[in-house]
């Protein structure tokens, strides 16, 4: 009897902790995006500033914290056999969100290591693309939160993700076209295109996750 009582109490406290962990994980995704936006701006304007490296280091720390949280959530869901019907969906979701954080971090590292030389004429466009990508992921964060609390809003929020993904595609195409129409050498063009494409891919991944979330929410509603 007492064993059962204790396990019930522990179930409710575990649940609260897990809810907190998931919220924190989504917060990290959102914060990494905001940090990325600042990093790109800082890189373009003050690339030799030491502040840039500190910011990249901070993103790395956030990424590693997200990894730890993912593992904790994964263990808790399996050990406590929580949400048996939605467990695989939630774990896949967290895995894909973690990949998204990894993509942000990867981009930061590539900027830090390869130091691409973006001429000033492209700065505005690159910042614009980055802002759209971050807005796209912000909308995804809302979609994720609504999946856990309010499945009816998932579709609305996912729609915003799709909207920003399309915006991002337009900005990417326009920037890539401008880069290749410029007088830069081909190797530099290719290098810049690589960065622009990598940033745009974050949106593609966000849209894929939003699509998954719509399916998961339909599964939950039936």
């Amino acid at each position: 009897m007492f064993g059962l009582k204790t396990s019930k109490i522990s179930l409710f406290s575990d649940t609260k902790k897990l809810e907190k962990d998931i919220d924190e994980f989504v917060n990290i995704l959102s914060e990494v995006g905001l940090a990325f936006k600042s990093i790109v701006r800082t890189y373009l304007t003050h690339s030799k500033n030491g502040n840039f490296d500190e910011m990249v280091e901070k993103v790395t720390e956030m990424e590693s914290k997200a990894d730890t949280i993912t593992k904790e959530i994964e263990h808790a869901l399996y050990e406590e056999t929580l949400i048996p019907d939605a467990r695989s969906d939630v774990l896949r979701l967290l895995e894909h969100l973690d990949e998204l954080i990894g993509m942000y971090q990867g981009n930061c590292y590539h900027f830090s290591i390869q130091k691409p030389d973006f001429p000033e004429e492209f700065h505005e466009d690159l910042i614009g693309l980055t802002e759209t990508v971050v807005s796209c992921v912000e909308s995804l964060c809302l979609t994720v939160r609504s999946f856990f609390r309010d499945t009816k809003s998932v579709r609305d929020n996912a729609h915003k993700v799709t909207y920003f993904e399309k915006e991002s595609d337009i900005k990417f195409s326009s920037l890539a076209r401008r880069i290749f129409n410029s007088d830069l050498k081909l190797d530099q063009k290719m290098h810049l295109r690589y960065f622009v494409e990598k940033i745009d891919r974050i949106c593609d991944q966000a849209e894929d996750i939003a699509d998954e979330l719509i399916i998961y929410s339909i599964k939950r509603s039936v």
Binding site: K8, E19, I83, T151
Partner: peptide, 20 residues
């Protein structure tokens, strides 16, 4: 449930207790 917007995990815990 739709009106109360309970978190998926909390709903899971309540459902377990309710099942018992």
């Amino acid at each position: 449930i739709a009106a109360s917007k309970i978190h998926l995990l909390r709903l899971d815990a309540y459902t377990r207790a309710a099942l018992l």
